[in-house]
């Protein structure tokens, strides 16, 4: 547990205790000092505590552990360890091209609560389905929209290795088409081997991972 989280927990606990003190000693508010104490304990500190809690939860939601905490996502986590560099996520994860503790969020920046209102509603629906509905098989889970090249370009756009790769010059305007979104990085015969969780049972896995 990080120091920030410990401070956050201590702050929330202290705020709760202070709120209880004011609640059960409400006669303190008959004097000016008590009124100020009540305002701090019942307004200022709770607002700060909730704001801090929200930030902490948003921070946690970006972690790989958070994304893989649902059983249905476990295979997607395993796919990061496939011992085959043609698997795009595995290659990025194993070579630290993405931070390992934020592997999912680095490439899926608009997923559920990090996307628009529709994405947020989908996130709530996912939880509903997970606990009260019929959970689909991992291999049946698809993105709602085609994968956005923007996620790749966070790192690759302008990179020499990307710009000069011979595969990216098979057609004269290939880079321009990819940049404008007319050509998907994950289109057929390009980087089209992604998580492919349906093939995990036949895959070999990298043993060097922690």
């Amino acid at each position: 547990m990080s120091r920030v989280v410990i401070v956050e927990i201590a702050f929330v606990a202290a705020t709760a205790l202070l709120a209880l003190l004011v609640a059960f000693r409400a006669e303190l508010t008959r004097v000016r000092g008590g009124k100020v104490l009540a305002f701090v304990a019942l307004f200022i500190l709770p607002v700060l505590a909730v704001w801090g809690g929200f930030s902490e939860h948003m921070e946690r939601a970006q972690s790989t552990r958070f994304c893989l905490s649902c059983h249905v996502m476990e295979d997607y986590g395993r796919s990061l360890y496939i011992d085959d560099p043609s698997y795009v996520p595995a290659r990025h994860f194993q070579n630290n091209f993405v931070p390992r503790d934020r592997a999912c969020y680095t490439c899926h920046t608009d997923y559920t609560m990090f996307g628009g209102v529709k994405s947020k509603m989908r996130g709530v629906r996912h939880i509903w389905v997970y606990y009260l509905g019929t959970v689909p098989k991992p291999e049946d889970i698809k993105l709602y929209h085609p994968y956005n090249n923007r996620e790749c370009f966070h790192c690759h756009l302008g990179a020499r290795r990307y710009e000069e790769a011979s595969e990216h010059h098979k057609q004269p305007d290939m880079l321009a088409k990819a940049a404008s979104g007319k050509l998907s990085c994950m289109s057929s015969n390009c980087h089209d081997i992604i998580h492919d969780v349906g093939t995990l049972k036949d895959a070999t896995f990298w043993k060097g991972a922690p």
């Binding site: 927990i9 929330v12 709120a19 609640a23 019942l42 809690g53 939601a61 958070f66 905490s69 996130g123």
Partner: peptide, 22 residues
């Protein structure tokens, strides 16, 4: 009000125990 705030903060503390969408 104080009791409600304290209850809410206790719920918040409990949610810190888990890294999970729920």
């Amino acid at each position: 009000g104080g009791v409600l705030i304290a209850l809410g903060l206790v719920v918040q503390l409990l949610t810190f125990a888990s890294v999970h969408p729920l």
